[in-house]
Computed example of a mutant assay.
Amino acid sequence: MTNALPLLLQVAAWLAMFAISAVLQAAKAENVYVIDTSKRPHSLAFANAINQACPSCQPVKYMDMHGSHRLARQIGSTLTDLHQKKELDLVVTIGRPATRLVARTLDDVPIFHSMAANPLPDSNESPNVINVEAVPPLSLQLQTLITLAPETRTIGFLGTRETLEPHLNIANKAAAQMGIQVKFYYVRRPYDVSNGLRKAIRETDGLIFLHDPVVVNADTVNYLLRLTLENRIPTLGYSEKLVERGMLAALTTNPEYFGKKLGEAIQQYIETGEEPSIEMIPALFQLHINGNTASQTPTVQAVAPNGVRMVLR
C-alpha cells in the first residue's frame, strides 16, 4: 500500500493537470469575427473595444457587408469555408441584416446580435443567436427629454399599437415616479401620421419617437421634422441620422463602452458557457444633440443625463 500511494498521487496530479488544460482549451476562441451590415463611424471602435476586453478573442476580425447583397453572399461563402476548416468559433453581428445572413449560414456557431435600435424577436429557428443589444430603457428616454427640456410636463409617443402597447405600463410607471404625464397616439399607416402628430403637438410638451417604420420612414420624416421644428417641440429619437436631419436629439449606444462590456461578456461566455447579461446603465448610451435645433427651441438646454455621453452636432 505504501508503494501505491506515490502512484495514486501522480495519477491525481495528472488528472488535475488534464482538467486545467481542458478548461484552458475551452476558454480559447481564437477565431472571432465581427460582421457588420454597413460600416459606420462607430463600427471599428466597437470591434476594437471587444478585442481589447476579450483576451480569448484576440485578434478580432472584421467584415463589412456595405449594405450589399452581393458582398453578403461572398461573406456567407467565406464564413461557410471558415467553419468547415474549423477556423470559426464565434460571431458578433452588427444590425439585423448581418444577423439574418449569419444565422442562415451557420446553425451551430454562437452569434451575438448587437448594436441595433430594437432587438430581434425570439426565434426557435435560430437558437444560436444571442441578443445582446443595448436598447435605452424607456425610463432613461423620459429622463433624457426632461433633462433637455426641464419645463416638460407631458410627453407624447406616436406609433402603431404593436410598437407602443408593450411599453404602456413601463412608461406610465416611470412617468409617475418623475411627476410627469405620458400620452400615446396611435396610427395604423403612414397616412395617419399627419393627424396623430398634429394632435400630439397640441397636447404635449415633447415627443419621443421609438423605432417604428410606419411613423418614421422616407415618406414621413421630412414632415415630422418640419412640423415639430415649426412648433418648437423638443423631440427625442433613436438614430443620429435623424439628428443630422434636424431632430433635436437621439439616444444611441455608446460604441466604445458597449464594446467593452460585450467583450467582457463574451470572455465570460467562452470560459463558462453562460449567456451574457449586460445591465442597461446610462454609461452604455450617448446623446446626440443638434446644436441648431437646440438654439431655436427656447425650452431646451444642451445637457445630457448623468452618465450619458453627449455628442453635439
Rank of each mutant, 00 (worst) to 15 (best):
residue 291 G to P: 03
residue 295 S to H: 10
residue 269 Y to D: 01
residue 273 G to C: 06
residue 295 S to F: 00
residue 263 G to Q: 05
residue 287 L to P: 02
residue 264 E to P: 08
residue 274 E to F: 04
residue 271 E to Q: 15
residue 294 A to F: 03
residue 277 S to E: 14
residue 272 T to Y: 07
residue 288 H to L: 01
residue 262 L to G: 06
residue 263 G to S: 13
residue 290 N to F: 11
residue 285 F to C: 04
residue 276 P to A: 07
residue 291 G to D: 13
residue 268 Q to D: 14
residue 262 L to I: 12
residue 266 I to Y: 11
residue 284 L to A: 09
residue 270 I to G: 02
residue 278 I to V: 14
residue 283 A to G: 04
residue 273 G to S: 03
residue 265 A to N: 02
residue 273 G to N: 06
residue 282 P to T: 02
residue 270 I to E: 00
residue 292 N to M: 06
residue 292 N to H: 04
residue 266 I to E: 07
residue 285 F to L: 03
residue 276 P to T: 07
residue 287 L to I: 11
residue 280 M to T: 01
residue 272 T to I: 10
residue 289 I to Q: 02
residue 295 S to L: 11
residue 278 I to C: 08
residue 291 G to I: 09
residue 269 Y to W: 12
residue 290 N to P: 05
residue 273 G to T: 04
residue 274 E to M: 07
residue 283 A to E: 15
residue 280 M to E: 09
residue 270 I to K: 10
residue 285 F to P: 07
residue 290 N to K: 07
residue 287 L to V: 09
residue 274 E to P: 01
residue 274 E to T: 13
residue 262 L to E: 14
residue 294 A to T: 05
residue 285 F to V: 02
residue 262 L to K: 03
residue 267 Q to M: 03
residue 279 E to R: 02
residue 291 G to Y: 10
residue 275 E to I: 15
residue 273 G to D: 03
residue 289 I to F: 08
residue 286 Q to E: 13
residue 276 P to C: 01
residue 262 L to A: 09
residue 283 A to T: 12
residue 287 L to W: 13
residue 288 H to D: 12
